[in-house]
Amino acid sequence: MSHIETIKQFIVEEFLPDVTPQQLADDHDLLSDGVIDSLGVLKLIAWVEERFGLAVDDTDLDPDNFRSAASIDAFVAAAPQRVGSQPCTR
């Protein structure tokens, strides 16, 4: 199942408060135009870990995994879930 709308919702709330998720293209490159800087990526990773119950370790830190809503979605889909952790439902 795709989480792309959830991901876009978080990105606009966190980094682009005046933008709607619909205005953000799935493949919009968030890193190259400064929407998200390296600290923003950290914030994003912390959220992905919490929201999807994943452990993102250093070897996954290829920025390309977090370049767009679509690439984050693909990363989440491919990542094994952390044992004993459930996605939270807020």
Partner: peptide
């Protein structure tokens, strides 16, 4: 205009 377009412009 929104912040997304402006950030692209700045970059």
């Amino acid at each position: 205009l929104n912040s997304l377009q402006l950030k692209q412009h700045c970059a």
